[in-house]
Structure formats: structure tokens, C-alpha cells
Simulated assay, not measured.
Amino acid sequence: MTSSTDLSVRPGTSIRDALSRLDRSRGQVVFVEDADGRLVGAVSDGDIRRGLLAGATLEDAVDRVMNISPATVPPTATQEAVDELKATRGIRVVAVVDDGRIVDIVGEGERIATPLPTPVVLMAGGRGQRLYPITKDIPKPLVPLGETPMIDIILGRLHGQGFRRVHVSVNHLGHLIEEHLGDGSRHGLDITYLHEPMPLGTAGAMAQLRDQIDSPFVVMNSDLLTDVDLRRMLGFHRDAAAHATIGAREYGFEIPYGVIRRDGHRVTGLAEKPYHSELVSAGIYVIDPSALQLLEHDEYCDMPTLLSRLMDDGRSVTAYEIHEEWIDVGRPEDLERARVAWERRGR
């Protein structure tokens, strides 16, 4: 990341001084920020040349030649979005803006990795019964792929996407998870715990976060091996103005028989081993904090129940299709598939 201090001036700064800043920084743009640090414009050497040709002088304020609609992205932007913006606008520098203020600048050859304020809730309280006896003495999130526990892989990917605040719900053998993760500093994260006095389902523990979260947050199961771009999912959720977004995955299966179509007793058609597909929940969600008001402390509540409450209340629930790698490590065969995928990456 490039420092915004090196590439910013105040309104009223002369074009000469802005040009000098451009030259010293070797950048392609100078951003104009007001006294409160809010972005009000940007000036490139091209803007300055066009302004001088139109009659401006080097002593005029930079306001006269600045672009009042500079290229910016939110902190949740993906690298793909940054690259596309650069290509579309023919620029090399993009400002990352949050609440009107520059929080980072992605220069030429740099990648966006802006730390996000967005919290993540990892649901890690389940018993992992389908993996028994593996999970008899070890909680499922600590089951290793190779030598690395699943939850470490998940946390590493969260950190790589810019997330820093994680709440982990724990119940079954939860003390082992807490001992392993600690405060999260080993992963570069701030980890706190939601203790379930009894199994509370896939949503119940979140009632403990009521009045603690004031922006959309991510919820995901702690037994997923996935490359899903959560920054893009957050952007989708915000663009849709949704109260909840469900990460959805296509699940298909072949019926191993010839299927008969009929009208009463009359056969109207035959289909040999047809393929059927549905969108299923991928165990990843973006939730608006207002949804937490629909939960009661220590109430058992699964995520489908919470989402149904939102829809019954007339609130918007959207589906975000996941096309990246995604393995739900629920059964022994899924665990083996996840281990093969992890080893294939050489990690």
C-alpha cells in the first residue's frame, strides 16, 4: 500500500504545489482532502495540463482543475474490482475510501489488503457426530488436514482477506479450541469467544452479540474448506440492501434410474438417469445486526429459523452463489477429500 499522506493536499493548495507533490512522490495522482480528512477530489498531471490549456495558472488553487469524481473503492473491494477499475479508467492508482476518508491507496503493482472492521462469527460449538469417533476427544474444528487444524486454515484465509475481528462460538470440547487459539494474536487476529451453556444451534450463540455489532457481519461454519471471496460477498450484500445474504452452492445428483413422466396412468415421457440440481446453503452468511434482535439469550435457534423470521418480518434475504472451491467437512469421505485438496496445494 502507498501512503495517502504522500499523495494528498488540501483544497486551496496551488496547482504549482500539487505538481511538485506529484513529482516528489513519483505518483500519477494527488488526492485532495478537506480539513476533516474527507476526499473531495483528485488531480493528475493530465488534469493539470488540461487546466493550463484552458487558462489556469500555476498559482491558481488546485480546486480549479481537480476531478471531483476520483476513482475509489470501498474497503470490501476485491482485487478483481480494483484491477477492473484501473483498466476501465486507464489509471494506476486507486484510493480505498471508507466513510468519505482515504484509508489506503493501491498503487501500481500493489494488491488490496485493507484490514476490514467487519466481524466474523465462526460457529464451532457442534459435536461433529458424523465424524465420530474422530471427534470423540477432539472438536471438529481442530481435526487436521495434513498437520494443520481446519480452524487454522480458515483463520489464515480470513486474515488474508483483511478480517481481523473474530468471535468463535464454543460448546463441545470448547476449552480445547480456546487453548489452541488463545486471543488470536498468533494468527494476527483479535479472537473472543461466545460460550454456549448448552447446544444453541447454528445461530443461537449470536444473541450474545446484540448491541455489540453495528454493521453487517460474516457468519460461517468452522468445518469449511473454501476459497470464497468474502469481500465480494459483503459487497453483494450491501449492493442488494439485504438484511441477510446466504452463501449458496449448486448441489446436483443423478437419479440412477429411468424416470417416468405421466399424466394419471398415461406415460407422457421417459428420462434416462436425469440430472437434478438445487441451490443449497453453503454455511456462509452475511447478516445485518438488526437480525440479532430476533434472537433470545440461551435460545436454541438454527440459521434457517433466523432467516425465516427475517422473511416473515418482511425483510430482504438474498442468495449469493459460490463458485469457488468449497468442501463441507461433515463426513469421513468429505474429510478425506479436503485432505487431498489441501495436500495438493502443498501447504
Rank of each mutant, 00 (worst) to 15 (best):
G156W: 04
G156Y: 04
R157V: 05
R157N: 12
R157W: 01
L158H: 14
L158Q: 04
H159K: 15
H159S: 15
H159I: 06
H159A: 15
H159C: 08
G160R: 08
G160A: 14
G160T: 08
G160V: 08
Q161F: 06
Q161H: 00
G162R: 00
F163D: 00
R164P: 07
R165F: 10
R165P: 07
V166I: 15
H167M: 14
H167D: 05
H167Y: 13
H167N: 13
H167K: 14
S169E: 03
S169N: 08
S169W: 05
S169M: 09
V170A: 00
V170Q: 02
V170M: 01
V170R: 01
N171F: 15
N171K: 14
N171V: 12
N171L: 14
H172P: 07
L173A: 11
L173W: 08
L173V: 10
L173Q: 14
L173S: 05
G174F: 10
G174Q: 13
H175D: 15
L176Q: 06
I177E: 13
I177T: 15
I177N: 12
I177S: 07
E178A: 13
E179W: 04
H180L: 06
L181T: 01
G182N: 04
G182R: 13
G184W: 00
G184I: 00
G184S: 03
S185Q: 15
S185M: 03
S185C: 09
S185D: 12
R186V: 03
R186H: 08
R186Y: 01
H187L: 07
H187C: 13
H187P: 04
H187Q: 14
G188K: 04
G188D: 09
G188W: 01
L189E: 00
L189I: 06
L189Y: 08
L189F: 10
L189W: 02
L189P: 05
T192N: 12
Y193S: 11
L194D: 10
L194E: 12
H195V: 15
H195C: 08
H195P: 05
H195F: 12
E196V: 08
P197V: 01
P197R: 10
M198I: 13
P199E: 12
L200N: 02
L200Q: 05
L200E: 02
G201V: 03
G201I: 03
T202R: 13
T202G: 14
G204Q: 05
G204M: 01
G204L: 07
A205Q: 08
M206R: 11
M206L: 15
M206Q: 13
A207F: 10
A207Q: 06
Q208Y: 14
Q208K: 14
Q208G: 06
L209R: 11
L209E: 03
R210Y: 02
D211G: 13
D211V: 06
Q212H: 14
D214M: 03
S215H: 12
S215P: 07
S215D: 05
S215Y: 07
S215A: 14
P216S: 06
P216A: 09
P216Q: 03
P216I: 03
F217K: 11
F217M: 13
F217H: 13
F217I: 07
F217D: 05
V218E: 00
V218S: 04
V218I: 03
V218P: 01
V218M: 06
V219R: 10
M220G: 02
